[in-house]
Design a binder for these strands. Structure first.
Length: 553
RNA sequence: GGCGGAUUGGAGCAGCUGGCAGCUCGUCUGGCUCAUAACCAGAAGGUCAAAGGUUCGAAUCCUUUAUCCGCAACCA
């Protein structure tokens, strides 16, 4: 619906996680759960969609982690690549492909991209003075230099800014500079780098973003802030060992800047996906045709790269589609503090899923997504949402329905007789709910989509109460059958409508209903597909209660 | 200091092209008893951070202040 209509296919990307740490719930809420829900919805709704992600594995930070731990960068990226891949799987975040930027395909794709821009004469070179460590035989990135602040005299000022007085600094301004890695004194040495003329693309970018009225205000505001300052050209190469080498003679020891090369990963990973599927040219449909809708899901820290820098690169290159939307989220804070590993304010995905039902984690995050502003996440919220909403509203409705079918109808679907008005109302409401929920998904309003889905279950519980099947079972068994039939049909609707947010429970519900989830569509959620006499499986508890003691940890 | 964002009942959030202040949870009361002591109904609870301004009318627009957060281009 909406503007999906003019597109033949949708390519959804989730921000490539930087592979020097475990992903945590803040990342999930910001950039991974929303696209997973979006894609699951789109598939049910019948769209042609590809969902890709992968590890971002190059750059200064990874090389420095490797040096500090005394291992090769490969050890670092392997460790976190596989750990993060598993974390996504554990949470039910299901990509069509989860690859990485250390592949040959990616190396070639980003080098080709670089060469196209260079051959077009768009790039230029500039020589600048930089600090160089003779002992380590490397140029030092700003943040790996400390020294005495020329403004306030603070002796531990970092190369990019002084934490004491807040002055923005360049490492060349520091007095008595030294490497944070070895402590030795660097020398000033010249180095030549390629620059991307971002400033020349400002007008085109502004026009492009102005043509996107459906973008979230927070994203547009971010971009406008950058435009106001004026975009500056960016160096797109670095003096570093760990990365994609500059594909030209005479540039040994230089690699393509990770933020130039990483988003090209979206293209190379799409290529890999289609290669695996035996259709090596298939990726072009998704990247080179105007009727592809490209959507980048990112956290707000990545807006600059996905809404400004990467689009400018694509404009410069010329062969590729630009993003239709960048529905970036804000940050999710934990227990009232910033999510940061150093302050112990982060929850790694692996710690959350080892304790709780992944669907409970997904639901708790989905209902407090930082869509418009930073939000807070508390363990007790997860407990409350699991117990009071998933358990008491959804799980309990399913359970009370199944227990009736089990006890009074031999575990089968009873026949539906004549419908009364109250039955018709709830049955018709499934259709209106499914279309309003769909509209929320299409417009990236995931919190609203989830709470709207739960509202249908609230209505279902009211229906159960108002029709009083526990009385009907004694007075009018046929009437009771009609009610329980309706409730079972509702359960099937829930299995479809909750699939985007609660995939594991949805599957469980399909099993309990003894039907396959294969071939289910969003449209079918409103159909009454369970036939009288259909045998049900034994009911199971969908969401077990989380005790206080589990939360106190 | 500059730029951008935020501040709404006990908690977490929505509302912000200006028009009686909403949702979920929690609390209190009542109903029901099929069900994971779950479900349903009703109620209480907010001078929308503060001050000033525009307007017939402001949570919403403007100015100032306070607090918090992000950005500031070689971390990604």
């Amino acid at each position: 619906m909406e503007n999906s209509g003019k597109f033949k296919r949708i390519l959804v990307t989730a921000a490539l996680p930087y592979t020097n740490g475990d992903i945590h719930l803040g990342h999930i809420a910001g950039a991974y759960l929303p696209p997973d829900m979006y894609v699951r919805y789109l598939r049910l709704a019948g769209y042609n969609v590809v969902f890709i992600c992968g590890s971002d594995e190059h750059g200064t930070a990874i090389e420095m982690s490797a040096i500090k731990e005394g291992v090769s960068p490969q050890v670092i990226i392997d460790k976190y690549h596989f750990a993060n891949k598993k974390a996504y799987e554990d949470l039910g975040i299901k990509y069509d492909i989860y690859s990485r930027t250390s592949t040959e395909t990616h190396k070639k794709t980003s080098q080709d991209f670089f060469k196209v821009l260079n051959d077009k004469g768009l790039l230029y070179q500039k020589t600048e003075k930089q600090l160089y460590s003779e002992k380590e035989k490397r140029f030092l990135a700003d943040r790996f230099v400390i020294g005495t602040c020329p403004v306030c005299g603070f002796e531990e000022a970092r190369g990019d800014e002084c934490e004491n007085c807040g002055s923005a600094l360049s490492p060349l301004e520091l007095k008595n500079p030294r490497s944070t890695i070895t402590g030795d004194t660097p020398v000033v040495k010249e180095s030549t780098h390629f620059y991307f003329p971002l400033s020349k693309f400002q007008a085109m970018l502004e026009e492009w973003i102005n043509s996107k009225p459906d973008w979230k205000p927070n994203v547009v505001n971010y971009c406008k802030g950058w435009f106001k300052t004026g975009l500056q050209d960016r160096a797109i190469t670095r003096d570093l060992d760990w990365g994609v080498p500059v594909p030209l003679e005479g540039y040994d020891g230089k690699v393509i800047y990770v933020w130039f090369e990483a988003p090209i990963g979206y293209i190379s990973i799409t290529k890999e996906l289609f290669e695996q599927e035996g259709n090596p040219e298939g990726w072009k449909d998704y990247w080179c045709k105007d009727d592809t809708k490209l959507v980048h899901f990112v956290g707000k820290d990545n807006i600059i790269f996905h809404a400004i820098f990467f689009p400018a690169m694509l404009m410069a290159h010329g062969d590729f589609v630009l993003a239709d939307n960048v529905p970036a989220n804000e940050f999710l804070n934990f227990e009232g503090g910033k999510l940061s590993k150093s302050r112990g304010h982060s929850i790694a995905v692996k710690d959350a899923v080892s304790r709780f039902n992944p669907d409970s984690v997904r639901y708790a995050l989905a209902t407090s997504l930082p869509e418009n502003k930073d939000t807070d996440f508390y363990w007790k919220d997860l407990q409350a949402k699991n117990n009071n909403e998933l358990g008491a509203i959804l799980g309990n409705f399913v359970n009370r329905t199944f227990v009736f079918a089990e006890k009074y109808f031999e575990g089968t679907v009873p026949a539906a007789g004549e419908y009364k008005e109250i039955d018709s109302i709830i049955i018709n409401s499934i259709k209106s709910y499914s279309s309003s929920i769909a509209s929320y998904y299409e417009n990236y309003k995931f919190k609203d989509a989830v709470s709207e889905t739960m509202n249908l279950v609230r209505d279902a519980n009211k229906y159960f109460n108002d029709t009083e099947p526990w009385k009907a079972v004694k007075e009018d068994i046929a009437r009771c059958g009609t009610i329980i039939n309706t409730c079972l049909q509702l359960c099937r609707s829930f299995a479809v409508l909750f699939y985007p947010v609660l995939p594991f429970s949805s599957e469980k519900l399909f099993r309990m209903l003894n039907i396959s989830s294969e071939g289910e569509t969003w449209e079918s959620a409103a159909e009454l597909k369970l036939h009288a006499g259909h045998k049900l499986n034994k009911p199971e508890i969908l969401f077990r209660k989380i005790e206080d003691s589990e939360i106190e940890q």
